[in-house]
Each structure stands twice: as C-alpha cells, then as structure tokens.
Design a binder for these strands. Structure first.
Lengths: 331, 331
DNA sequence: CTGAAAGCGCTTACAG
DNA sequence: CTGAAAGCGCTTACAG
C-alpha cells in the first residue's frame, strides 16, 4: 500500500508539484480555484506529506527530544514526577504542533545513543530531566549545537538554560512551619547530594535550623518511598527524641510515616512530618500530609516556552517559580 | 555550525560516497585498510548520518509511536501505570535500537494530529495505550497500514493484536480470597465500563459473587483515588453492613480506605479491602494492601516484541499474562 | 571490492 | 500567480 506523493496529487489536480506544495503549506499566493482543485485531489488521494522528505529540505523535524537521564535502579520507580512532566511537556508542545521523542538514558551506552540521535538531526531541541552531578550528557548535547533546556537546575558546571521551583525557599517554609509549631528536634531526610533538588532543599533546612539554635539531624535518601523508610529508621536510632521530620519529597515522607507507624510513633502527636512536592498521594496518607507544593507541570510548561523561543547563541535567564506550603494534618 | 555530510567524509578519506555509506552501515564487503581510513575520517569530522535523508531512501524511521489515548481529565493523573509502561517500552525498544515517539491524544484534534503523523510515515509501528470504547483511533491507525498493537484488550470491534493480563482471573482470585475469609457482603468498585480492564475485573467479581449465593453490590469509578473515595461513600450509603470491598485498581482501593477511615471503619476488622495492580504504593498503605499483581512492565515488553516481529498482513494471537494474588494485611 | 548514477519525496529561489 | 529545475543527504542496484 504505497502512499500517494506530491507528484500524484499534482497529476490529479493538473498542476505542478510546486503548486501543490504551496497549497499544502498554506501559502497565500495561490489562486482560489487552483487551491480548491488541489485540496480536492489531496482529499481524494488521502495525501499526507512524507516527513522525512520534508525534513531533509527544511532542516527541521518539528520534534523535541525529552531526555530522561536516570540510573537503571530508578527507571522503574513510580515517581509521579516523571509522568507529570512528560504529560505537561507533550501538551504544551502539542499547541506548537510539535511531537515529543522520549529518550531514556540509563547507562553509558544509552548516553551514546542519545547523543548520536540528537547529533543525527532527529530533533530540533532537547529538554533534559533528572540531571545528576556526574552526568556528561548536558555538555555533550550542548556541543551538538541543538538548543537544550533543563527541567530543574543542573549540577554540572556547564549549564544549559533551566527552569526550576524555589527549592531553598520551599524547604525553608517547611522547616519554619515546624519551628512555629514549637518542635525542638527537627530532622530531615535529604534527597541525593548529586541533584540540585536534593542539595537546595537541604540548604533550606540548614538555614532555618541553624538560625533557631537547634541542631541539625540529617539522613540521606534518593526521593523514593523505600529510601524514606530506611532513612527514618536511621533517624530514630540516631535520636529517639526527635519530634519532627522534613522529608525532601512526599514519597520519602510516605516511607517515613510507614516507619514511624511500625515504631509506634503517632503522627503528628509524637512526630510531625512535612513533605515536599504535593503529589496527589499526599492527600490520601493517614494523616493527610503537610507539604510544599512543587509546580511540576508549570515548570514543564515554562521549559517548553523557553525552548521554543530560544534564539541561536542566546543564553536566557533561569526561571524560578514559587512554592507554597500546604498545611494538612501531619504537621 | 553545519554538520559534515557523507560527501565530506568521502573527500577526506579519498573514497566515494558509496564506500563511506557501506562502512557506516557495517557492510562487510569493504577492504580493511579502506574501512580504517573511512572510520578515521568519520571520527575526525564527527560525522553522524542525517536521519531524514536515510529515512527518505530506506523508508524506515527506526522509531515507534506510543499513543496514549485519554480524556483530558486523566491526562494529569499520577497513575503509575502510564509511567511504568512508557519506561518498559523505551527500555525494550532500546535493545532493538529504536526510539519512542510519545503521542498524547486527548481530544478530537489530538486524534487527527496523531493520525496524520502516523500516516506521514514518521513511525514504523504504533503501540496503543488506554483504549476506550468509543475511541476511533485503532480503526484509523489500522487503516494507515502501519503495524499496530495494543497494551490491553481493546473494546472496539476492530481489533489490533494485543497483550493483556488475566483480568477476569485476577478479579476472581481477589473475590474468592474474600469469600474464603468468610466475608458476607462483598462490594466492588468497578473501573470505567468503556475499558476492558474495567469490564473484565467486574465480570470476575460477578462470577464469584453469584456463584456463592451472595448479592452483588457495585459502584463505579474511573481507576483514580478520588473516584475510589467517592464510590466508597456511595457503597456505605447503599449498604452500611458491607464487610468487604474489591476495588478494580490500587488507586481506587487507596481512595476507598481513605473514606473508610473517615467513616470510622477499621480495615480489615470491619471492612476488608482488596485492590488490583500491586503498584508500589500498595506496600505503604495502612494497613498494607492485599492486591492482585498486574504485570504491567511484562505486558509492555511482550507488546514490543510482538510489534517488532509482526509480519505484514499477519494477525498474531493475543498474549495473556497471568496475575497473582498478593496477600498483605488489608484482607 | 569500489564507483558513477539514479532516485527517495519534498521545498524554494528563480524566471516568467 | 505558476512552473521548471536544483538540491536537501543519503542508499543501492548496476557495472566493472
């Protein structure tokens, strides 16, 4: 079932290929009768332009790469972050009539593939997700000359333009809330130290704690429930008298609450818990989770707009969106 | 920053474009010295083949479309199903050196876009997700002649090949477990009636209930937490004496437990709860959720293999993977 | 084993 | 306003 070409449409409409091309591309320098005849032929033949041929001459592909750079261990995690970003990006790109090409790079081989793919001119731009400190991808992609933006501030020294939420301010608000509730021993479960979301939320915690004559008490996690549960066990061992914990993600807060329950601590009576992200699950925990809203979809939309308006050689300023403390029952 | 072409590599290596093409594509009919010279030139110039030009002549794109057909209301839900499928498909396709092009079709305009995109030869095959009864997409895509497979049995009369889990059997096992525990008034929160996962899980429930001289008690949901919470409220109103509920998704089970808690019912003492899917969150509810394991990633892998091995004109048999009851504390 | 040549299906100056 | 022609960057019979 061979698809009809421009040639076939031209023959049917009795015009040249150039004219068909003009009509198909919406040029307004075509006589109405001719346009109508061409459109009829297009319709009758079910003509759809071949995208490879078009890209070859226009040097555009009308697709954008969404590169997710994650270690294999987290690739199957059910972090809603991924899903929300993917959907928001697709939706926003849809308005610009562009497609999303998804690329997971979870290994060195994966990185090489992504790099080749981008260098092969397959996409007009790249959105980077989940950047880790040692990640060589940003530098490699920047070198291809293709426009690149990052969802979240990258750790690496070579920095593509990015959009992020106010991680430090959000963490600060969370911990200040705990201080305001009179909590004395406030611990934190931090995110991975090779991601800026991990670093910045920890920085916000430290600022408030050290500014209020409290001692800091830190355990590390990697944003997953399981790591939150493990970190909470560690924290209880380190200081059985703690009366509050700020987890750098809702998933870790959920894991922490699981551990607290098993240890017989009541939330918030014995230990107050605050999360970060305000994912939907935060409304369904027992008790419902007090957390910091992370405008994930809004950041994604901003990224897309940034990418689409990027002029060659230009370095736009980062965009930082505000967070908001959402008080529920856990703290 | 113009990228080097075959031409440039040929000039540098002192051979013809045909020879460079052969080396780049791994043909073994090239003399070793020449191959080495070409590879050196490729390296020095940083040559990467232009994919549009290659596709134009080979008529292949080495990418596969993943089409998610969902109403806008659910597009931003954080159902891990979406994330798991996307990741599993990418991973599996990576082994075959193919890329995933993600397409969300959440409106009539979206459908038209997807159809045009596929008809435009942008992808070599299509994987369909979240099919709803009235969805015109399967028929439209099948008409393009591009290979299509579906994740989950489609409702529509025109049926692409598919892979699914044993929804009926899984639901049966869940309800039999409740019967075995001596529960008398077993309700169900069903999925949407325009999706086979909704229909089949309800059918499994009905089979067991009606085969054990119990009355059925059904409320409808749409697989989300919120719908599960609302359905549970309805159920408690309809029959305050119910002592068990089978929810057709873990998310709905989580919503139902939320409602039960607010209504002062203890789980499982007053009301036993069983879910479906065994998402990670099921291990972190209070109490941990008894559920039916849905091998989402395995189904996705099977789909990809099916798609890649599809011969033109062939209609492979559906593949149905088994489910497994996971007993925890909620029932 | 290698090269000259045709051709994949489009777009876009350039003439007219 | 329209058409003839060149060209985008590859691959692949076909000769040799």
């Amino acid at each position: 079932m061979r698809r009809p070409t421009l040639e076939a449409v031209a023959a049917r409409a009795g015009v040249s290929r150039a004219t068909v091309s003009r009509v198909v591309n919406g040029s307004d320098t075509v006589r109405p009768e001719i346009r109508a005849a061409v459109l009829r032929a297009v319709e009758e033949l079910g003509y759809v332009p071949n995208s490879a041929a078009r890209s070859l001459v226009t040097q555009r592909t009308d697709s954008i790469g969404l590169v997710v750079s994650e270690p294999p261990s987290r690739v199957f995690s059910d972090d809603p972050f991924f899903s929300i970003v993917v959907r928001a990006v697709s939706q926003e790109l849809e308005n610009a009539d562009k497609q999303v090409v998804l690329m997971l790079a979870s290994s060195a081989a994966g990185h090489a593939r992504v790099e080749r793919y981008v260098a092969g001119g397959h996409v007009d731009g790249v959105i980077l997700l989940s950047l880790h400190g040692s990640d060589p991808l940003p530098a490699a992609l920047l070198r291809t000359g293709v426009p690149v933006v990052s969802h979240g501030r990258p750790v690496s020294t070579v920095r593509p333009p990015y959009c992020d939420c106010d991680n430090v301010g959000g963490a600060r608000a969370a911990v200040e809330h705990l201080v305001g509730k009179g909590r004395r021993r406030i611990a934190t479960i931090a995110g991975p130290p090779d991601m800026t979301a991990g670093l910045d939320r920890l920085a916000g915690y430290r600022e408030v704690v050290s500014g209020s004559d409290r001692r800091s008490l830190v355990a590390m996690g990697d944003f997953t429930r399981e790591s939150g549960a493990a970190a909470m066990r560690q924290l209880l061992e380190d200081d059985p008298d703690l009366d509050a914990v700020f987890a750098a993600s809702d998933l870790m807060a959920i894991g922490a609450m699981h551990t607290l329950r098993k240890a017989g601590r009541r939330v918030p009576d014995d230990v107050a818990v605050v999360g970060f992200d305000d994912i939907e699950a935060a409304r369904y925990t027992d008790p419902p989770l007090t957390t910091v809203r992370h405008p994930i979809a809004e950041v994604a939309q901003a990224i897309v707009r940034m990418l689409l308006s990027l002029e060659p050689g230009q370095r736009p300023e980062p965009v930082i969106l505000p967070t908001e403390l959402i008080v529920r029952d856990s703290a």
